[in-house]
Design a protein around this nucleic acid. Structure first.
Length: 459
RNA sequence: GGCCCGUUCGUCUAGUGGUUAGGACAUCUGGUUUUCAUCCAGGCAACAGGAGUUCGAUUCUCCUACGGGCUACCA
């Protein structure tokens, strides 16, 4: 009995965007949860558009995601001879034929058909002509003209089309290079692919591919066409329509586990379950169900997953992930991390929310000063400053006591002292508990900032 | 235009020939918090429309509308 084998087959004409990443995740998980294998195949037969740098980028993205393919990476550009061999076989067994129709004739044919409201398709002019191959000719597949082509899709069920809807498509170009549908079938055969999990933009290709398998007398694999992902505007998510690459999510501070978990739940579910770590998804994927309709991407939910996975990490692990020189292995860094982590839902939030732990506020915002300070603030802060200056034990409890006493002696609300103080120390009005911030910053820094804040508001 | 596929809260989804149609994100309201965030509690919110089958349809069938895909000597 054959083991389950799937593949993910991107063309290296751009970075890996999240639609592709999800398709890959599904193909990979399908194999994993069935104790099978999944290979990566680079479909680089289009010499014009394929770039090696994209291949590298794609492989890098998978490494980051933690999706590890089995075997070596397959490059279609290494298989040209093999494709040629198969084309010869098809030619020999009467499943394909040489065609010398010019591009001009083809395009005239097409416009004529379209103007008549017909479905544009090749008219089969050369089908029975038995022409010789030359560098001006292409090879076409003899698509059956009667009956239907059908297959059972593991996500969409039975799909079928009338054969006369399709035409004799080209399998070898004039330059001798095989085309997509032929290459795919040959590689799927040679790699013993048992299950083809791919985007549903390929359903129409499947009709063609199924017939090539048959013409070659090979067993047709099982197909599973997963619906596309739509952008938040409801339009299809694609490279051309602003889909972000996996690398960009990494740069935003999204964790690979979070992205995987989010992507997994886009078009796949297992009851009410939301959270699946790597191990769980590998085990449980085959027990879930695919959804059949396109799903809309939601950054909010991605961030929610991200926060969830961020919460699982220790301060040490977080520091490793944060790309900011200030965060080192020091105790101070760890304290800062623990202090701000609850308000961070991405790795980048740590940078955003920690500035004032490492630097004095660059300048104070006029609007915030106007909003939170009045004519008494200066006196209040001066009083607080002197009480703090005489404080000997600088810890959170003592600092809190000094603030509370100042508030009480002035008979004002906490906000009249707390907010200006927060502004003075952090440059913002949102921060962790202010006494905590004071104690972390230390007496010297606290007083220095308080002092420059006083100078600022006295003007 | 033709062909293929789809349609449950704003979003991701569960689910069933008879359910108070469930969960999650977002949102709203309370509580905790000196702020923000977190956390806790609660609320709002959906079976696209029309026929048919049936004692009964969100669930089955058909039609319409809407959405997505494909329609290359791209992949």
């Amino acid at each position: 009995m054959n083991i389950v084998k799937t593949r993910f087959a991107p063309s290296p004409t751009g970075y890996l965007h999240i639609g592709g990443a999800r398709t890959a995740l599904f193909a990979w998980l399908y194999a994993r949860s069935n104790q099978g294998e999944c290979v990566l195949r680079i479909e680089d037969t289009d010499k014009e558009r394929s770039k090696e740098e994209y291949t590298k980028e794609i492989i890098k993205s998978f490494k980051w995601l933690g999706i590890n393919f089995d075997d070596e990476v397959i490059y279609q550009s290494n298989n040209f001879d093999r494709y040629n061999e198969v084309i010869n076989t098809l030619l020999k067994n009467g499943s394909a034929y040489v065609c010398n129709c010019s591009k001009e004739r083809l395009s005239e044919l097409r416009t004529a058909q379209e103007s008549r409201g017909q479905n544009p398709k090749y008219d089969g002019k050369c089908r029975e002509l038995n022409l010789e191959r030359s560098d001006e000719t292409v090879v076409r597949f003899k698509f059956p003209q009667e009956g239907t082509t059908k297959f059972t899709d593991i996500v969409k069920g039975n799909i079928e089309v009338k054969n006369n809807e399709l035409d004799d498509f080209i399998i070898e170009r004039a330059d001798g290079a095989a085309t997509y549908n032929l290459c795919v079938v040959v590689d799927d055969i040679d790699s013993n692919i048992t299950h083809v999990i791919r985007g549903d933009d390929h359903v129409n290709n499947t009709f063609k591919q199924v017939n090539i398998f048959s013409a070659l007398n090979k067993e047709v694999p099982v197909y599973g066409h997963v619906p596309m992902i739509l952008g938040e505007d409801g339009k299809r998510l694609s490279k051309r329509h602003g889909a972000l690459g996996v690398g960009e999510y990494a740069e935003m501070g999204i964790l690979p586990d979070a992205l995987k978990n989010y992507l997994l739940r886009l078009g796949w579910s297992k009851g009410d379950m939301e959270i699946f770590n790597q191990q769980e998804m590998e085990e449980v994927f085959k027990e879930g169900d695919f959804n059949q309709s396109p799903a809309t991407f939601s950054m909010d939910k991605l961030l929610w997953f991200n926060k969830h996975y961020l919460d699982q990490l220790s301060a040490e692990q977080l520091i490793e992930g944060i790309e900011l020189p200030e965060f080192d292995k020091s105790e101070y860094s760890k304290v800062v991390i623990e202090t701000i982590r609850e308000r961070c839902s991405s790795l980048n939030d740590f940078s955003l929310n920690s500035f004032y732990f490492f630097n004095d506020p660059a300048k104070y915002d006029d609007q915030l000063i106007g909003k939170h300070c009045n004519e008494n603030t200066s006196d209040h802060m001066t009083l607080l400053e002197s009480s703090m200056t005489s404080l000997e034990d600088w810890d959170q409890v003592s600092v809190k006591r000094v603030i509370d006493e100042t508030v009480a002696s002035l008979s004002v609300g906490f906000g009249k002292i707390g907010l200006p103080l927060r502004l003075a120390l952090t440059g913002t009005v949102n921060s962790p508990s202010i006494d905590l911030v004071c104690s972390i910053l230390g007496k010297e820094v606290t007083l220095r900032r308080l002092n420059s804040f006083l100078n600022r508001i006295k003007n």
